[in-house]
Each structure stands twice: as structure tokens, then as C-alpha cells.
Amino acid sequence: MRHRTRTRRATTTVALLAATVTMSLAGGCTGGHGPADDSSGQPSRTPARSPHQSPSPSPKASRATASLLAVKIDNAPAARPQTGLNAADIVYAEQVEGGLSRLMAVYATRFPKAVGPVRSARESDLELLRQFDRPTLAFSGAQGKLLPLIDKAPLDGQTPEKVAGAYYRGTDKAAPHNLYLRPKKLLPHAPGTDALTTGFRFGAAPEGGRPESSRTVRFPAARFTFTWSGDRDRWLVSMDGRPTVTTDGKRVAPATVVVQHVKVRASRFHDFLGNNTPYTETVGSGTAEVLRGGRSYDVKWKRATPTGGTDFTTADGTPVNFADGQVWVVFTKA
């Protein structure tokens, strides 16, 4: 009996110590920020900690237990400047109705105090998000027939109707361009780089490439321009001919830009004006340009399955590394 009592006490002590360590680590992932946007220009990432350094990352093996946050962000001229973009690890730009553009910002290493303006989801978002392990998707709503598909998708959809306390209406813009999210009202802390199961690799630049000072991607009714800044070692973003800044006045400047040529087809859905919603196919293969360090690299991309990440390789099959920092992926029609 005495031996069993000592064993139980030892087991309890070990369990308590383990719980204390776990709580400390969870608290350390939160990360503080300054104003309602973000306090610094770029997410902090250490290449040695990146889960994407392995030659052949396994999407299933590297799944994180904590949920990352994806937010659909309004990109109509009336919605700018946006809030919280500089804190995102990845920003996806896609075409929507009328040839306009919309953004999806993905947060894993840190959460800003606020993100927005938040807008509605699209069908192709579901395919894009399958690469992550049950991500949390923050959006303002969706077309009525699309909502059942979102409910069935392997993600946690969060709208103002579900979690009203996480959203608020700003006073700086007119509706519907003034809905904002407080990320920490949805998730207690950012999950970290292990949640970024995109297949992206970070490290030294590939050989070759060509000097590139500026690259413009055009949608039917929108355009993105990325201009290299040697002083900042970043690509300065402009949209529709105007510099892109956040609400705290900071220029949006990713370290890597991917111009990914994809199939954009008509979907089953339309907006309230009758315009068809484009469907951006992100599973498949094709060509892309990777912009980093003031150079452009012609590469091939391949995403074999919805649950897998995207591989970017040179013509001879060598994996292409991205520069450490924020990544923008602009999907353009092949």
C-alpha cells in the first residue's frame, strides 16, 4: 500500500509539471501587438523552426493540433486601407465577381488585434483551405446555396451570427465595408508555423532567375503591382495604381510574391446582380513566377490532392525556397 501511494503521488507530480509547462508554452504563442492593426511590418519567422525545410514534407504527418485562422478580406476600393494585413503569414489574392479581387489572409504565427474589413466566402475557398487541418474561417456570410457546403467542409466557419462578440462595426467606412474581427475572440492563441501545411519552403534563393524591379498582375477590373525595394528587402504592394498601406499607415511589403497561373472557371453560383462567381482551381499543376530578392524565377507548381500543399520547383525538379517573411500568392488566369 505504501508503495502504491508513493507511485500515485509521483504520477500526480509529473502530470502537474507537464500541465504547467504546456500552459506556459501556450501563453508564449500569443504574441503582443500595438495598435488595432499591427506594431511591426512583418511576421517573425525563424527558418530553422520552419516545418517546410524538409525536401518532401508530408501534409498529413505535419498537421498541427491547433487551428490557424483564415479571414476573407474585402478588397474593393471603398474597403481600403485594410487592417491587420501585415500580421498575416500568407495573403492569397483571387478574382471574384465583376473581375474584382478579394483577399484571404492566413494567420498562424501571430494574431493582430483586429482584421478587416471582413467579407463573404466563395466556393473555391473550400478547396484552398483543405490543405490545412480544420482551419477556422472568418467570413461575413455567403450565397445561400453555398452555406450548406461550408457547413459540411472540414473547417470551422465563424460568422457574426455565430460569434457576435468577435466582430464589430467600425466607424471609418460605410457598410458593408466596415465589419472587423477580433481574432483572439475566436482563438486563444496563434498555433505557430506547424499549422502552415502549405508545402512552402524557406531558405536560400535558387540559382538563376532574372532581375525584376516591378511586376503587375491584372484582373479584368483590378490590378496588383509589386515593386522591389532594396532598402527594405521587400516587395512594396500597390493595388489599382495606389500604394497599399494598412490603417496604421504602414506599407504592405511581403518578402516573397508568387504569381500562380491557374484555371479560373465559372462556378455554380452568382451574386445578387446575376454575375457568375469565378472558381479558382488550386489543385492541379501549372506555371508560376516566384519573386524574391529583386529577381523573378520561372517555376512549376503542383498540388496533387486537396489535402496536400503546393510544390514549387525549377525546370529540373529542384524545390524552390521562398524568402523568410510574409508570402503573397496571386492567382491569375492561365
Rank of each mutant, 00 (worst) to 15 (best):
G141K: 10
P117R: 04
N86A: 06
V217R: 12
A195H: 02
F224Y: 15
G317M: 15
F139R: 04
D151H: 13
G274F: 00
L69M: 06
V91Y: 01
V283C: 01
T314M: 15
Y167T: 01
A175Y: 07
A121W: 00
G203D: 13
G203M: 09
T246F: 02
G249Y: 03
M239Q: 13
A142N: 07
R80Y: 01
T318A: 15
G170S: 08
L129G: 04
A19D: 08
A121E: 04
G98W: 03
F269G: 00
F219G: 07
A108L: 08
D298Y: 00
P211I: 09
G294L: 03
T287G: 02
K152W: 02
S62T: 11
T46M: 10
D248I: 08
S213K: 14
L137P: 01
K162H: 08
V257L: 03
S24W: 08
Y167Q: 05
A204Q: 14
S50K: 03
T314R: 15
P254F: 10
D125Y: 02
Y92G: 00
P306A: 10
S24V: 11
K173W: 03
V106A: 08
M1H: 10
K250Q: 15
F200M: 12
D271A: 00
L137C: 04
H33R: 13
P211D: 15
R234G: 01
T11D: 09
A108R: 06
V257Q: 06
G293H: 00
S67D: 10
G41Q: 14
T277H: 03
V217E: 15
D316E: 15
R130M: 07
Q143L: 05
T12L: 15
K145E: 15
T197W: 06
N275G: 00
A19M: 12
T136S: 11
F312R: 08
L69V: 01
T7I: 14
A315H: 09
R110E: 15
S44D: 14
A175I: 08
R292E: 02
A205E: 14
T12F: 09
R4D: 11
T225M: 10
S58A: 07
S120C: 07
D125I: 02
S229V: 10
Y167D: 07
A18P: 00
G293C: 01
A190H: 04
P135E: 11
L149T: 12
S101E: 11
P43E: 13
W328P: 09
P191Y: 07
L68R: 01
P254Y: 11
A36C: 10
D194V: 05
V106K: 04
Q82I: 03
L146R: 05
H189I: 06
V115S: 02
F224D: 14
A253K: 08
S58Y: 02
Q53F: 09
G203H: 12
G99A: 03
S285Q: 09
G157F: 04
D298F: 00
F269E: 02
Q131R: 13
R110V: 06
W301E: 08
T310Y: 13
D231R: 14
A87M: 05
R268M: 03
V252W: 06
R110S: 12
F139Y: 13
D194T: 10
P35R: 13
S67T: 04
S140T: 09
E281K: 02
T11S: 09
T280D: 01
R295T: 00
A315S: 14
D233S: 14
G208H: 10
E207T: 13
H52P: 01
G274A: 01
T11I: 11
A253E: 14
D271E: 03
T193H: 10
P319T: 11
T332K: 14
T313R: 14
R234K: 07
